[in-house]
Amino acid sequence: MPFEFISAHLNERAEQLLLRKRHVVQSATARTIMVNDKTYLNFASNDYLGFGDLTIKSENINTLGSHSSALVTGYQLQQQALEHYLCTQLGYQAGLLFNSGFSANSSVIKALFQDKAAAQNSAIFQDKLNHASLIDGALHSNAALIRFNHNDLNHLRSRLEKSKAQNKLIISEGVFSMDGDTAPIKDLLLLAKQHNAWLMVDDAHGFGALGNTGLGSCETLIGDILPDILVITFGKAVASSGACVLGSRAFIDYMLQYNRDYTYSTAMSPLLADNTLVRLKHIKKANTQRVMLNKNIATFKHLAQQHNIAVMESDTAIQPIVLGCAEQTLKAANKLKQQGIWLTAIRPPTVAYNTARLRVTLTAAHTFDDITYLVKHLAEALL
């Protein structure tokens, strides 16, 4: 029989307690979520500022679809305005919109190294904890892939020194999605320049939440030296959808010629682009939400320490509790659901084997009582 491997692999995943399933969400905010007619406290959302709860809508446009790829007739004034705003705010020459962060990350890497002759003299240096989209892009490119230990500048330096590649690209996340810690971007930039390399940063979980005005992991670098490629996604703190790749004019022009995802995809909806721009302008002024988010992070860490809950070193909204065993992690997540807390059990292959975890994500919408309730039942679930 053809494709018998499908059942075999599904059975294997089920036996290992790694089988993934979807849940139909009836409604959700940054604070609560309703599944199967039951409302839970939501500690699994990436809506860090609670912007998904707000009615932020432009009245300038009602056109839902772009009806074409950007290189045909899909590139409209709304997409141009969104790109221009991000370039102006972050100090880049040009930008390119994508319908998802995954598409942006993977396709940019593939396109950059599409020239097989040049790629033979090229190498990609990736942090071992980088997102799947970044790893997939490198695996499907024509360049050599070299991994370095997480946030280990000495290991990266050693890798760079041993490389004979002419074209070197270092890639890191700004905030790592599963550990919640931040990359030493300024040090990565200095190291890149010392070795005549480029730096690419995916700031999906930093943009909006970090920086005095929410411009993310690279805000303190604006006006100085910036990553050569910066990817901003709109599905987290912006509470929208899609992504923008920022870089030099020559780099973006190159992407226009060789990025297959961009060329052969229908362009971002002009309505989505317009509403996203409205949200971005609100985010710059969302100091109250960022202060509240940081207060909630500090509260959670303090209460977790009081209850002897071992949380990983993170000062961001992502607060992981590594249990190791997938079965134990699932049991803890189910106990929390019984108490009205929605908290995702993250298991392999999303994270490495023996590092299954409860991934707590905090938002500005959570209250002190919410966090107190979470920590109380976390302590009981982990016994």
Rank of each mutant, 00 (worst) to 15 (best):
F3L: 15
E12I: 15
E15H: 13
Q26N: 01
S27Y: 09
S27T: 02
F43S: 00
T63M: 09
T73A: 15
G74S: 07
Y75P: 00
Q76P: 04
T88P: 11
A94D: 07
F98L: 15
I109S: 03
K110F: 09
K116M: 08
F125N: 01
F125Y: 12
L139W: 10
N149A: 07
L153D: 00
L160R: 05
K164S: 14
S177Y: 08
P184E: 06
K186M: 12
L188N: 09
L190H: 15
A192R: 03
D202G: 11
F207T: 01
T213R: 13
S217I: 15
C218R: 08
G223Y: 11
P227G: 08
P227M: 08
I232T: 15
V238Y: 06
G242L: 14
A243N: 01
A243Q: 06
Q257Y: 10
D261A: 05
A267D: 12
S269P: 02
L272K: 05
A273Q: 01
L280K: 10
V291Q: 13
V291S: 13
N296I: 00
H307P: 02
N308S: 08
N308D: 12
T316I: 13
T329P: 06
T329M: 04
T344M: 11
P348Y: 08
V351D: 02
L362T: 01
A364C: 11
Y373D: 00
